[in-house]
Each structure stands twice: as C-alpha cells, then as structure tokens.
C-alpha cells in the first residue's frame, strides 16, 4: 500500500478464503491482469529481435539481477520473524548471490545470477564493461526502485513480500523458460552462454512451493489476503514495467530516457 486508504470494516467483513482458494485467486489475478507475455518477450519468442535488441535487454536488466532482486529479497528477510519462512528466504538469497558463498559448507560452485547474466551477455558479443557501465532506462530504474522501496520499508509486510516473490518467480519461471528456447532456436546463442537460464529454472522450482505454502498458511485473515494480493499484483506490474523500454527501443530504433 502506498497512498491507498486503509481497509475499513466493509472491506474486511467477509471471511478470508481458505489457503488453497487464496493461492488459486492469486493465479487468476495474474491471468486476468497480464494474460499475455510482455511485448518484448513476445517479439523474442517470435524471433523478431535483432542482436542489438537482445544486448540492450541484457544491459538494461543487469542492475535488476545485480541489485534490485538481491536487495528486495534481503529486505523481506529482515522483516520475517517466522524462522521457517526466513530460512527459505535465506536460501533464495544464497542462490541469488551465488551458491559459491557457501562453498566451504556445501561444495557448491555456482556463481551469482549477475555473473551468469554477464556470461549470457558475453555470448551475445558484449563485454563485462559494456554491461556494467550501462545506465538503465529511467522506466526500468523506476521499476527497480519501486521494488526496493516497497520491500524495504513499511509499505509491504513480510507476507506481502512473500506474495511479491511468488509473483516474480511465476513470471520469470514462465517467461525465462520460453526465452531460453527461443534464444537457441531463433538467435543461435551457444549452449554455454545459457547457463543463467538453466540455473534459474532449477532454482525457481524450489522457491515456488514454499512461497505458495507460506501464503496459504499465513494469509489467514481478510486483511492479510487483501494486502498480499495487492503486493502480488504490484510485483507483476514491476516485472512488466521493467521490460517496457527495451521494447520501445526495439520497436522505435531509438533509445528512451536513461538514468543520468
């Protein structure tokens, strides 16, 4: 909730949905609000993008994988006083920051998502410097900044944060999975440059069940369900807004406004 007035007695008089019904409701909200993939992804899947468009996507999304997703996840962890939930979020954070952070405990060597994203970009002909020095499109920056703020401060509760995570993971699971197929089929991106997509696909399969379970159990009041559903929808907005300007650039051939 940003400026919306608080829910009053009329809003809260109905009993909450039971757990699974609430999860089903969220998924219906997703289908209602965004029945199609973001336009940029539609073009990607249809093989209509040029290499420069893909490169722009890599550059513009780098700060999301490097900062916004990491920061927003950590911010929700700090708010989460339920240890079981927090333990799941901690594991998610380790996956984001690089499983090699706990190599001494587990032997894992997978690096951070941002490193894997860079390797994907290198497979498209970009250098690490090209990617890291890119100033995001302002709209993309707004979307990332929104995700960080809502996660960090009082607008979202810990449970709203979990709803946001579920929305983000459902979005990425579907669309990045299809992106991987399209990149191989239409754009000849070498297999070795697609490690990001393989790693993400495996990891997200672990997150979605506990996110659903957490919401199913803890969203046990009407108010919690209303705010969690709102956070879920806002996260879908954020994910779609993140891709708006790379789509504009691909369609128009000119660069939209960027962060100074």
């Amino acid at each position: 909730m940003l400026y919306e007035p608080p829910y009053g007695p009329e809003d809260l008089k109905e009993p909450p949905l039971d757990g699974q019904a609430f999860i089903n409701f969220l998924e219906m909200e997703r289908a209602r609000k965004y029945p199609e993939p973001p336009p940029f992804y539609q073009s990607l899947y249809a093989g209509k993008l040029r290499t420069e468009d893909l490169q722009l996507w890599v550059k513009d999304m780098y700060s999301y994988w490097d900062h916004a997703l990491v920061y927003s996840t950590g911010a929700i962890l700090i708010k989460s006083n339920d240890e079981a939930t927090r333990t799941h979020i901690l594991k998610k954070l380790v996956y984001l920051e690089g499983k090699d952070v706990v190599k001494d405990l587990t032997g894992w060597t997978t690096p951070a998502y941002e490193e894997l994203w860079i390797r994907f970009g290198q497979g498209l002909g970009l250098t690490k410097g090209d990617i890291q020095s890119w100033k995001p499109f302002t709209r993309s920056y707004y979307a990332q900044s929104t995700l960080c703020m809502l996660s960090r401060w009082w607008e979202w509760s810990w449970l709203d944060g979990v709803a946001s995570m579920l929305a983000g993971d459902l979005h990425h699971q579907e669309y990045l999975g299809r992106a991987q197929e399209a990149l191989q089929k239409h754009y000849n991106v070498p297999e070795k440059s697609l490690e990001f997509f393989r790693v993400f696909a495996e990891d997200v399969k672990e997150h979605i069940p506990w996110e659903r379970e957490t919401l199913s159990y803890w969203a046990c009041t009407k108010e919690r369900q209303l705010t969690a559903a709102k956070a879920f929808r806002y996260r879908l907005d954020i994910e779609n807004q993140l891709l708006l300007r790379v789509h504009t650039a691909a369609e128009s051939g000119s660069l939209p406004l960027q962060v100074p």
């Binding site: 901690l90 499983k99 952070v101 706990v102």
Partner: peptide, 14 residues
C-alpha cells in the same frame, strides 16, 4: 551473507 548462514542456520543450505 556467509555469516548470516551461520547465524540463521547452515541447514538453510542443507
């Protein structure tokens, strides 16, 4: 983060 894994549970990574 590595320290947080010690504090919040090494079992979080199995």
């Amino acid at each position: 983060l590595r320290k947080m894994v010690d504090e919040c549970g090494q079992t979080s990574v199995g």
